[in-house]
């Protein structure tokens, strides 16, 4: 079952095609990464999912049903451009935002109090936003995003501008909510932030989807068959002769295997030469490497 499905979504602004024919399935209960460089169309896609703009073509299904107005309650959205009413008090503001999502006043108040207690900020209720530090405002912003207990949480560049403490705090909360059944979509151009969090990703460039799939499958698909071998002693001559050496260091070496070569044979070769092995590991590409390679590839295709 998918919490979100995009079917053939396109969107243009005048002559500019921001999103072209995107199909995307986000399984329920997953942490999903929507990745792409700046200007790839991520924010436009998210704005269509949150109902801010409508697609020119295609369909959006939330929890199996076409996007309706009451889906607003099911979605929690933290935009990249963040902000709150500076002159409004924290409590009033959070109640207002929660009620716009469709919560009752009493329900909103109880939930907000619980969240403020969680974040250890319950005495902020009557403070104006402008009196809070940047980090404090970020906590309030996060509460505003999740207070109505959405089924689908969409975070656009969530960690930009966050201090390390808040980054960890919010990562923890996201994991906790995910374990409780909330599906999460991360949108970012910072790969290293997503690598440890996301189970599946979609890679977008120039409005087009270039790649989707589970993180492990993708890494497997794009691996370069490079192995890192740690050993003591001199590098055996036979290895130098028969294998393509990528990097040499004092006590380890990176070797790229040809299609007909096998990692077990490589290890045996080392053992046969009497080397003491301290490390034997396949080097998988980082998301960043896949990203750069794929974006470069798709840019080339778009030019030709």
């Amino acid at each position: 079952m998918n919490i979100l499905e995009l079917q053939g979504i396109s969107k243009s602004f005048g002559d500019f095609q921001a999103v072209r024919q995107v199909d995307l399935n986000v399984p329920k209960g997953i942490i999903y990464g929507l990745l792409g460089p700046n200007g790839a169309g991520k924010t436009t896609m998210i704005r269509m999912i949150t109902g801010i703009t409508g697609p020119d073509e295609g369909r959006i299904l939330v929890d199996g049903a076409p996007l309706r107005e009451d889906h607003i309650r099911d979605i929690g959205y933290m935009p990249e451009e963040r902000g709150l009413y500076k002159k409004m008090k924290v409590g009033d503001q959070l109640i207002y935002l929660a009620r716009l999502k469709g919560m009752s006043s009493a329900e909103a108040k109880a939930k907000i109090k619980a969240w403020m207690e969680r974040f250890d900020v319950k005495d902020w209720w009557d403070k104006k936003i402008e009196e809070l530090s940047k980090g404090m405002q970020q906590k309030v912003q996060f509460i505003a995003t999740v207070v109505h207990e959405p089924k689908l949480l969409i975070l656009d560049e969530p960690f930009s501008g966050l201090d390390p403490i808040n980054t960890n705090l919010i990562k923890d909360e996201i994991h906790r909510m995910n374990e409780a059944g909330t599906s999460v979509i991360f949108s970012t151009h910072r790969m290293e932030q997503v690598e440890e969090i996301c189970e599946q990703i979609a890679l977008v460039n120039k409005g087009k989807l270039i790649l989707t799939g589970p993180m492990q499958v993708l890494k497997d698909q794009f691996k370069k068959h490079v192995f890192k071998v740690g050993f003591s002693g001199p590098l055996p001559e036979s290895i130098r002769m028969n294998y393509q050496i990528d990097t040499v260091q004092q006590d380890w070496i990176k070797i790229k295997l040809e299609p007909e070569q096998d990692s077990n044979q490589l290890l045996q070769e080392f053992l046969k030469q009497g080397c003491r092995i301290t490390l034997f590991q396949e080097v998988l590409p980082t998301l960043n490497e896949i990203f750069i390679e794929q974006v470069g590839e798709s840019n080339r295709q778009l030019i030709h």
């Binding site: 949150t50 801010i52 607003i72 959205y77 935009p79 451009e81 009413y85 716009l100 505003a144």
Partner: peptide, 11 residues
């Protein structure tokens, strides 16, 4: 104040 996008996702 950059609050529009948040509000517009609700109304």
């Amino acid at each position: 104040n950059r609050i529009n996008e948040l509000i517009i996702s609700s109304v």
